[in-house]
Design a protein around this nucleic acid. Structure first.
Lengths: 232, 232
DNA sequence: CGGCAGTTTGACAAGTCTCAATGGGGGTGG
DNA sequence: CCACCCCCATTGAGACTTGTCAAACTGCCG
């Protein structure tokens, strides 16, 4: 896809309707582009905050702790806007799960421009609040849930984001490996695998190959995710 | 403190400089006020998103999972703006650690008004991004750190927010109990207590009574917090 | 079809949780 | 102002979930 087209995808989804031509072209002048192949981490070691828009593909936002430990902070898909902080206590990077096309900006310039269009800041704020909400939910899972609850909750959440309906079931193709899932849930590969087997033997899911998943009993999965009753 | 004064505290810290009188008074007209005594949770069970400004005191944002498990998602102090979501998979509430004075708003009305002042949305966005950053750092701690690293990191972070310098050391009075700390770090009271003892016997901290803490060796604590080297 | 990376499964170790008892701080009432 | 008492914190022993190490298996790609 041409840079022109990539930018337009960003503009349609993020710039508010009726944005002035001037703002449109100013964003275009500071936009940068990159294609990341699976496994690439284009922002690794960045010394300034970045804002990236995922035009296509999927990616994981990874934080690195000492002793080579990695924590997946969030997964992102086409249409998502991701803020990638410069290194603080932990080093962050955005790593492609599938080949990705990205439009990105230095965060400070992006914010400066955005402030000139109030609808634009509001759009970014909405997306940030959504990211905050997801991060809070992940916090609860990491802090207070068992391995099985973590995986059940993960599958339910993912099916909302990338799943398709198939009769009463939901199906999806996970773009991430068992290691990525483990690094996201604070578990090891082995524990993730054991819990997949457990959910399979409980009849809650079926798997097709390495990445195909069918959720057979959404209700049962949600119950096992350890949510509070009020959440229907 | 009078409602008038409470609102002015909010206005000075959150409304942008040079905001119009109209906006100022519109915010004032939707503002609500409450005083929470230690242990009170004024937004428990709210069915709509709320935005709260902490004028004085300190509070914890708590998420409730099944089986009575609680996860402290964030601690907040005077001057903080907190977004409290209506219940989703988990029920959230803001609970006072010390007596609090709060100014709050229904989130939807707040956002609608904010959008009319671009500087206002930008201010809220900045604060949200800071909250997101803190939440991400917590995610790393919960997912990939040992009990000792969690507590060391917690003490370092808290000292940045509420600590005072005392020669080469940093001192603080923690407003939260061991249970709150455990619920924040995904640990039990007992494990938190054991790690306090361990850090004490390593000569990294001293404690005065239940809540007084002196951090004696910041460098040593940061190393034990499991941060990556690059973070000086 | 063959090789390899990723996944599954098993046995064992370790860190944290649970349950229980003791100790101490700090607030309250005399 | 002091003493008492209750709640929180600390410490200990044993159980359990998850991590670690190792081996076998299997999709998937060339």
């Amino acid at each position: 896809m041409s840079y022109q087209d990539l930018f337009e995808r960003f503009a349609v989804q993020v710039l508010p309707l009726g944005v002035s031509d001037g703002t449109h072209s100013r964003f275009k002048s500071i936009a940068r582009f990159t294609s990341a192949r699976t496994g690439d981490a284009p922002f690794k070691g960045t010394s300034t905050d970045q804002i990236a828009f995922v035009v296509s593909g999927s990616a994981k936002l990874v934080a690195q702790a000492s002793h080579g430990r990695e924590q997946v902070v969030a997964f992102h898909f086409a249409g998502d806007l991701v803020s990638i902080p410069a290194s603080t206590a932990h080093a962050y990077s955005l790593c492609a799960l599938e080949d990705c096309e990205l439009v990105y900006f230095p965060a400070d310039e992006f914010m400066r421009l955005a402030e000139q269009e109030s609808g634009m800041v509001a759009e970014v704020l909405n997306r940030s609040l959504q990211a905050l909400e997801r991060c809070r939910e992940k916090t609860v899972a990491l802090g207070r849930k068992t391995a099985q609850e973590k995986l059940a909750g993960f599958l339910v959440t993912m099916s909302d984001r990338i799943g398709t309906c198939s009769g009463p079931n939901r199906e999806m193709v996970l773009p991430m490996s068992r290691k990525d899932i483990g690094d996201s849930l604070g578990l090891t590969i082995e524990t993730v695998s054991r819990q997949f087997s457990e959910l399979r033997s409980l009849g809650l899911i079926e798997t097709q190959g390495r990445s195909g998943i069918s959720l057979l009993k959404m209700q049962g999965l949600k119950e096992r995710a350890g949510h509070v009753k009020s959440a229907a």
